[in-house]
Design a protein around this nucleic acid. Sequence first.
DNA 1: CGGTATCCTAATAGATACTG
DNA 2: CAGTATCTATTAGGATACCG
Lengths: 130, 130
Amino acid sequence: MEAAIVKEPETDHPCSENACAAGVSGIRDAVYVLNGKWKLPLIFTLTEGPKRFKDIQRSLGDITPKILSKELKELELNEFVVRTVYSTTPVTVIYELTPYSKSLKQVLHELRDWGINHRQRIVNSRKTKQ
Amino acid sequence: MEAAIVKEPETDHPCSENACAAGVSGIRDAVYVLNGKWKLPLIFTLTEGPKRFKDIQRSLGDITPKILSKELKELELNEFVVRTVYSTTPVTVIYELTPYSKSLKQVLHELRDWGINHRQRIVNSRKTKQ
DNA sequence: CGGTATCCTAATAGATACTG
DNA sequence: CAGTATCTATTAGGATACCG
């Protein structure tokens, strides 16, 4: 993930015949840039508006500064996030989504709804089991 | 990921105040079960219909049998996939999506479209840069 | 074909402490 | 506040070989 923005799009998953290719590799390309436990939640929380480092940390609950820092850098590299420094004392740093990252709106929306639903399903299934 | 189906839904990401919680934790719950490089592509390829182990492997391009086996087991545990064995010689094993996994249809659709688009964006940006 | 077994690397992630 | 440094544990993922 050192320079994902110029990473060769994976043209080399030799799909069985022909039709399957586009779909599977579309998904793979998406998963590739949105990898890991934190990127999607992080982008999602920034859809609520620009936030400071510490605020993002609080929103995500239990991410350590080291990981958050790394994730933010990757998102910057891939042009999802912009970082702005204000020379207050102490400095204020604001992270916000780029216009491009708005293209993820539908994905995030669907994923969030599905996740909420899925959790509910698990909770229910445990109730009926006992 | 040993028994994700009974894993405690993560109620413990102490969101800053109130409104942010539902969204972020919805996303986190979704990412939690759909984790890793392969689950989404794997589910996607099965939306094309039931497939055999080897066929799935080919569809995904470069997944090793060990990883594929592990991923399929996790998807079975979480009730996304059903495994059926037919007593031919040699045996035929078919994997297919459960009705529940159809609930991921919109997610997969959006993600695939986004991925295709994202790849195109990168290709274009490289052209204009040179 | 449908997997396991073994070995291995690299990425992920967290704890804790510290700095400008 | 906004991170970095260090150190460590866990996991993901891959190579290769093999088995029924």
